[in-house]
Design a protein around this nucleic acid. Sequence first.
DNA 1: CGCAGACTTGCAATCGATTGCAATCATGAT
DNA 2: ATCATGATTGCAATCGATTGCAAGTCTGCG
Lengths: 366, 366
Amino acid sequence: MPDKKLKRALAPEPIAHQGMAGPGLFGDVGGQVKMADIAMLAGVSESTVSRALAGSKLVNPATRKRIEEIAATHSYSIDQRARNLRLSRTGTISVVFPLSHESEQGIADPFFLEMLGNLADQLSNRGYDLLLRKIRSDVPRMLTDLLREGRTDGVLLIGQSTQHDLINELAEHYQPLVVWGARQPDNRYITVGSDNRGGAAAAVRHLLDCGHRRIAFLGNRQLPEVAARYQGYSQALSAAGLSVAPDLLLPVPFDRQGAFAAISGFLDRDRAIDAVFAASDIVAIAAIRALDQHGLKVPHDVAVVGFDDIMVAAAYTPALSTVRQDIALGARTMVDLLFRLIEGEAVNSVELPTALMIRASSAHPA
Amino acid sequence: MPDKKLKRALAPEPIAHQGMAGPGLFGDVGGQVKMADIAMLAGVSESTVSRALAGSKLVNPATRKRIEEIAATHSYSIDQRARNLRLSRTGTISVVFPLSHESEQGIADPFFLEMLGNLADQLSNRGYDLLLRKIRSDVPRMLTDLLREGRTDGVLLIGQSTQHDLINELAEHYQPLVVWGARQPDNRYITVGSDNRGGAAAAVRHLLDCGHRRIAFLGNRQLPEVAARYQGYSQALSAAGLSVAPDLLLPVPFDRQGAFAAISGFLDRDRAIDAVFAASDIVAIAAIRALDQHGLKVPHDVAVVGFDDIMVAAAYTPALSTVRQDIALGARTMVDLLFRLIEGEAVNSVELPTALMIRASSAHPA
DNA sequence: CGCAGACTTGCAATCGATTGCAATCATGAT
DNA sequence: ATCATGATTGCAATCGATTGCAAGTCTGCG
């Protein structure tokens, strides 16, 4: 047998795809250089290159060093497509926003956007990519597609929307799933969320302490998180010996315009309220505007408390009292739980504490 | 030769990975079913399945129908990892945020978050996924890695940050790249951005029309977009026969706290201003708060105009006058240009019109 | 000098698809 | 009955990596 190794090393295509622009920082962008090229240059097999680059102990330190240098010289990076295929993983976590029918247009609420930013941080810290998906009405189809296509190692679902039952069914068959939202008795999936009930109760107690009695509740109680906040609201009222007045419960949507319209409509027929507890800061801000247009001053005539503590809340005029959710902690927790699920660990849902931020919009009436 | 086909069809593993939970909606999530399984069930080769599912005309309509039905029954989806590897594409577009040193912590500005939401819409409309990346200080390394790893078919860079030269160098070697930001004379990359100069000039003209003369400019002029806005500012002043007062130029950062601190510091030593033009709404809002804390009322004592028209601008109190950027159009344009680049078309940078939104914060002084 | 055992390395199968080319089949014309 | 022709289908290589197993090299010790 003639020397096969030599023959390979002398093969006509050294690596010269094209100009090979030298050591310039961006010389080889585009992924033309492959592992086989590095192997040939180093005079070893692909196996050895793979092992060297993966840090395996099975390669001679000298060989490894040479390979690493060659790889660096040609600014080679492992092709993640191929690697992931072989390892049957993806290196990608999907973040999915189920959009309710209301706001088909987009992820509007700053709370969710801030959450997204934090998740991106957390995931990139762990070397994972973040795949962003919005899902419209047909959640089941799109979600299963996403999973089956093998594009993702796990899913973070932001908000339960009104899809609780579907999520439950999905969870039966798909493990690496963490949902931001309210923990419910029959949840078969892992949730991370705030103590909605407790936070809301604290807010309403605060309004009661200020002497308010006719406190409107603004929010769509079909959403589990809002339902939990409503529980806190009603619980705080009961504790004070008051009962819930059904005419003070407004099922307003979460988007700005919808909320504004709903609240305006309400104020057109009923203005006998002295406080408002809104299920989100966006709703609270819409409420303040609507109140203003109806000649009611905040906090003088009506006190307002929101929920979330989005960035603008403190900067708003009047500064918005609100129940603070710790978004950064929430994101960290979701990612942490998801990776533990991926590793097969059994984990439990988490409920995070909230903090009542009292600001100008609910200052004690003079 | 014995009948090989028959042997295969009778092979022991029918497909029974496990329970095969029946036709339940989520029965087969997880990607266990592969093309080979479908092929076997249909009694054809993988080639035929591939062609049938890809809509090739090379398969018998009857065969195609049968394959499609079997695929549907077993809720099979093509594995995108494998497909993309074979086709050497990814089906993914990366959206990259270069974070300047200032705000290492995260994507804070609502403008960028709204942009992100819109990009997600546009990309998913085209069947592409959106990979979100934040890049810290070492832009070159991370960006080239991202590209070389073969994870992405194209890159949307949101904001030039202070990396103009690096981006230029990158663009020499990497084509499918569209940048949100200011068009500059020596750009070798495609940009989409607003008419920063024109928008700013309109805003400043408006302030001049209201009778203001000492108009502060708030923004970090190292950023190309801000530099362009500054040009508009200075141009409008010149046109009115005024000159730029260097002491009215404040290099404030883009994040809320930093902006607030910088403006407060300025007001501590100089309060002889009657208007403020801020390079972003976030800065404008910070300015309003700082002015308020220094006993200056907006718009009575000082008029304020921002830039962006983020969602809270109109809802703010006082409602914020601002230069509106059409985010949705911007996102659509970026995606459109990127896909045309990917298809090899030659395209040009785009500058989008802005609209001056006059609201309460700059109402004509009484 | 010979051989066991520890180190290194390479071969070849594999992940799950796509596709050029060859092979097969059916049909109609002669 | 024979053959050209077009319509279907299958074979096998390929995308770029990883890894179990076998083979080869080198060392030290008897």
